[in-house]
Design a protein around this nucleic acid. Structure first.
Lengths: 342, 342
DNA sequence: CTGTTAGCGCCTTCAA
DNA sequence: TTGAAGGCGCTAACAG
């Protein structure tokens, strides 16, 4: 048994409130929404009745009338992925502030499931959709015949007519190298992950362009294999053995960097004096617990999520949100692995 | 410009389909839902029309009628937390299979925001709610006067009338010790995180009970401070210096265990021969990249999420889901840090 | 200032 | 077998 009134099973409706306050449904509606002119006393009665019945307006009925649902769909392809979460947080945050609710759908990287979820979202008449991919490689577009605005986050759409927001890996690669150069390093090597990933390629390309501007090249061939600490360890050991004279390593991920730090320690190299190491992703729990703490490139993913949400907002309000892939700025987070603490 | 027909801005409605097929709305409805008797030919016409107009039934209008929305709310207190994600995945997975969609709300650990989101969810007439907390310490109940079923996951409610699913940390502590004992270890120490956390306390209590049954106690006082790799490193070094004769360490988290492994290596101890190390959480990326790979306790969080979803399902179907805190089983994942690979 | 009326899109009786 | 009518809960016009 519940305490408050007669809210046995069903939630109270506006007509319950109206009856309780002795007014018409329309008047109750106006009173609760500050619409039209309602006598102060009447309004008070209605508000009191609503409070007593714990009245919550039915958003569905409202949406049916308004033609807008105040919901958006977040279509992710891989919740597990570490990059999803901050984007999701940023988006959820931005929408929450705008009193919009978020439908979460995880397609598990399966195109079929994605299609299913898309249908489901459309049937719920979401006002917009954000598609979050797990890699920065272009992904298949959902198509142009979707009745609501769609924004692609992290993984850009392969259709240039879609709007995509993706981190600027090229700039990240440049930034990493520029930092190492500014630290006085000249003999720099590169260890990174899966060579087929656009992320690996773009970071490498950016790094090379920054090196070239300084009249330099990487020492040895860039070593690309897996995005794992294991690989970082193996590659780091091999690298330091083959090219003992390097003074810095640009790593394609923080995990790889952790592996490199481990090998450097094993081989008696001191970081950062003897060898500077910079990672990528700024995965806090890894970076701040490394010995020494790890300098890294942060892709501002939460920011990216927020911006994606903002674009959807704008589109809902009828603003033209443009198209094409937009590369969002990244930032450098300096810690002890490139500059010694005094 | 879009290709298909006249779906300029608005999505097609049932009445559009009916007109297109030259039948009444009622007939169209029946044809599309296999209800009542509809002539095969008529049905075919309607289905064709629906396809051509890319008709998707309006879930809101449907829900208004049915009194059920086919949605549930997932109220998390901290998306960032590592434990959230698997639970969320499990729940989303289970619901997705039942054609239910999930509203995601992140309260950011703020009670006020949580209340706000709760209202929002109720206004959307969700059919049920899962509340996911970030620690296993009991959290304030949302109260008993909520018109839909509520299940608490991970963090139990402090009201025994609520139904809570939480991992069995006590059993986990026991399991860890039993494994170490079965490996022939007798001189076991304990390093763990924040002593105020129920998780730390329960795991410790479970471990102690298993030790006691073997007529043993921990070597030295359990060392409890932070859930970080840094702390694991510091505590590990101190421990091995004070009690060089220990042959095993039970760590309260994988991060702590990673720190301990690091210190053991620095001090020339060989794992697992000389010293066995077991972690907690089975955080794959940490555990499988450790040297050697880390044995750990897995709380089956995805399973927990799935079960929470199942309970909500049951409750929606009118099944009594019971009450109280239920402690879900955990499992041991054996890797190289406790048993040498051959 | 208040109440009546007309739908939003859909489904479900009940007549035809 | 088909269609007309009523209503889910709410809001926006209009009348009173």
């Amino acid at each position: 048994m519940v305490s408050s009134g007669d809210m046995a099973g069903k939630a109270a409706t506006l007509s319950d409130v109206a009856r309780h306050a002795g007014v018409s449904i329309a008047t109750a509606s106006k009173a609760l929404n500050d619409r039209g002119d309602v006598a102060a006393a009447t309004k008070a009665r209605v508000v009191a009745a609503a409070a007593e019945l714990a009245f919550t307006p039915n958003a569905m009925a409202r949406g049916l009338l308004a033609g807008r649902t105040g919901t958006v769909g977040l279509l992710t392809s891989d919740l597990e992925g570490r990059f999803m979460i901050p984007i999701l947080m940023g988006a959820e945050d931005a929408f929450g502030a705008g009193r919009i609710n978020v439908f979460l759908c995880d397609a598990r990287g399966d195109a079929f499931r994605e299609q299913h979820h898309l249908k489901e979202l459309l049937s719920r008449r979401v006002d917009g959709i954000i598609v979050v991919g797990r890699q920065t490689d272009p992904r298949p577009s959902l198509g142009q015949d979707i009745p609501v605005p769609v924004v692609y986050a992290y993984a850009p759409s392969d259709d240039p007519r879609d709007l995509s927001l993706t981190p600027d890996n090229y700039a990240g690669g440049r930034l990493a190298i520029e930092h190492l150069l500014s630290c006085g390093r000249r003999r720099i090597a590169h260890i990174s992950g899966e060579p087929s990933y656009a992320a690996a390629q773009d970071r490498l390309a950016g790094a090379r362009s920054a090196l070239a501007e300084a009249g330099l090249e990487f020492v040895g061939d860039p070593m690309l294999s897996e995005w794992t600490e294991h690989w970082g360890r193996d590659a780091g050991a091999l690298l330091l053995q083959r090219h003992p004279d390097i003074d810095a390593v640009f790593c394609g991920s923080d995990q790889i960097a952790r592996g490199v730090l481990d090998s450097a320690r094993d081989l008696g190299r001191s970081v950062p004096d003897d060898l500077a190491v910079i990672g990528y992703d700024n995965w806090e729990v890894l970076a701040t617990n490394a010995r020494p703490e790890l300098t890294s490139i942060d892709a501002n993913l939460q920011q990216l999520g927020r911006q994606a949400a903002q674009r959807v907002f704008d589109a809902i309000d009828g603003v033209d949100i443009g198209e094409g892939s937009h590369h969002l700025p990244v930032r450098l987070v300096i810690r002890g692995s490139t500059i010694a603490r005094r």
